[in-house]
Design a protein around this nucleic acid. Structure first.
Length: 437
RNA sequence: CGGAGCGUGGCGCAGUCUGGUAGCGCACUUCGCUGGGGGUGAAGGGGUCGUAGGUUCGAAUCCUAUCGCUCCGACCA
């Protein structure tokens, strides 16, 4: 992509409403634009990142055996009346009336809707287990939206729902999601720690929030320091195998959010205790037959009797992750994208647009990178070097390829790694092979 | 939902107290110099001052209402 053609409205000055790094940089880097309180448009650069995150989530969900579908944003009130949540949800639920005076709502989540789909289509225990998910926009009419897309009213969420014939099956489904989440966040360059969360009326230990540690996190979290060093399960993880030992390893050490904090445990841990702030990027939950019971979702069991389906739900804040990644990875100059989610891998800076040698070298590098399938943003504008450097640092592409007359005299260009700041003077060929390889 | 504050070109702000026909910086357009970390000179374009009523000869400025947005606290992917 040529920057001269790209819609990238960056800002030199700080918008006054931005209080935290992710909000500030998303606005300044031209990733998002506010429409109204807690509601944003995603501009090309931000949208690209959002799609990358969505794709990683998709790959890891599919790998764990889930199936993607897509449910509507607008739901009928009747479904929510069945589960009694129509009244319980309160003002956070955006209620809408259609032209026939039917009560509708913009979905804040989809337990009722998925339960409705499954109860109408699955009759036998032989059809279970199933895990269905979608990545769809949700709306929660937050009293006080803030921090940009981190706490918006409209947000993109991946929500998966598991269906099993008994609690043991549900636990297996839960464990798969647990492991899939570890992998998903790690692939985005994040360290997300699973922490014991409130389970509500169900009880037990089957609810975890995945927290990214960051200074600007909204809640205080506590964990054993060793958990920060755990290895992430690799690609070859067999989701059909017994994952319990793996989950046990991750859950036996102390790791909790503030509402579950235990002072006695803190005293016992001493220097091993890590106290930090966390951003909730995922939440997995087993809730048994709460919805299947209320909505009559049953299958015929092996003995020919109806049994209630055991369910769990598993959320990932896809749009929030964009902010969380920036919170975890930025400096005073701007964003530092982990390669897996970067909108482009390489940014080419032409230091003297209009100079024949510079233009030719840039065009050549641009074409070769593109041919090799590398996503590249070419700053071909007639701007001063300083402005281009500042802009490129701001949008945070992992690699910068700096091509100017000074180096070109000796057949050299510079590549800079945004994360480490390391610069190297190389021949164009060497630079290309390094970036393509 | 309680508390505080702000709405003036795309962005950041001054002007409001003390009414007199709108200004600054950045950005933008054209031209020149410049050219490896947001350079510089000249010339330009762009705003019914959130909206609606009222007071006044005259309202960005005073009064009333209303809408929007932000921040602090209680709640949440």
């Amino acid at each position: 992509m040529r920057l001269s053609h790209y819609f990238l409205p960056t800002l030199k000055e700080n918008p006054k409403e931005a209080q935290i790094a992710s909000h500030l940089y998303m606005l300044r880097a031209g990733m998002i634009r506010q429409s109204s309180a807690g509601i944003y448009s995603w501009l090309p650069l931000g949208f690209k990142v959002l799609k990358k995150i969505e794709q990683i989530v998709r790959e890891e969900m599919d790998r764990a055996g889930c199936q993607e579908l897509l449910m509507p944003t607008i739901q009928p009130a009747e479904l929510w009346q069945e589960s009694d949540r129509y009244d319980d949800y309160g003002k956070e639920m955006l209620r809408i009336t259609d032209r026939h005076d039917r009560n509708m709502l913009f979905g804040p989540t989809n337990e009722e809707m998925i339960t409705d789909i499954v109860r109408g289509s699955i009759r036998s225990y032989k059809d279970l287990p199933k895990n269905l998910y979608h990545q769809q926009w949700k709306f929660r009419d937050e009293v006080r939206p803030r921090f940009g897309i981190m706490r918006g009213r409209e947000f993109l969420m991946k929500d998966a729902y598991s269906f099993d014939i008994d609690a043991e099956g549900a636990k297996r489904s839960y464990n798969k999601m647990f492991v899939a989440y570890l992998r998903t966040f790690a692939r985005m360059g994040l360290k997300a720690i699973p922490m014991a969360a409130d389970t509500g009326p169900i009880g037990g230990d089957l609810s975890h929030e995945f927290m990214v540690l960051a200074e600007t996190g909204e809640s205080e979290v506590f964990c054993h320091k060793d958990i920060l060093e755990f290895d992430i399960p690799d690609e070859s993880t067999d989701y059909q195998a017994d994952l319990q030992p793996l989950v046990d390893k991750w859950t036996e050490l102390y790791a909790v959010t503030d509402e579950k904090a235990d002072q006695a445990e803190h005293a016992k841990l001493g220097d091993d205790l890590v106290t930090a702030r966390g951003i909730e990027v995922g939440h997995i939950f087993y809730f048994g037959d709460k919805y299947s019971k209320a909505m009559g979702a049953t299958v015929v069991g092996p003995e020919g009797k109806d049994i209630l389906i055991e369910m769990g739900s598993y959320g990932i804040g896809v749009s929030r992750l964009v902010g969380a990644i920036i919170e975890a990875s930025h400096d005073d100059d701007g964003i530092i994208w982990p390669e897996a989610v970067a909108p482009f891998k390489v940014g080419i800076i032409n230091l003297r647009a209009g100079d024949d040698a510079c233009d030719a070298a840039c065009e050549d590098a641009y074409a070769k990178l593109q041919d090799a399938g590398v996503e590249v943003l070419y700053d071909d504008r007639d701007e001063r070097g300083g402005a281009k450097f500042a802009n490129m640092d701001l949008i945070g592409l992992p690699w910068q390829m700096v091509i100017g007359p000074r180096g070109l005299k000796d057949g050299k260009i510079e590549i800079k790694n945004r994360a480490s700041g390391e610069k190297a003077e190389l021949s164009i060929e060497d630079a290309l092979s390094k970036l393509i390889g």
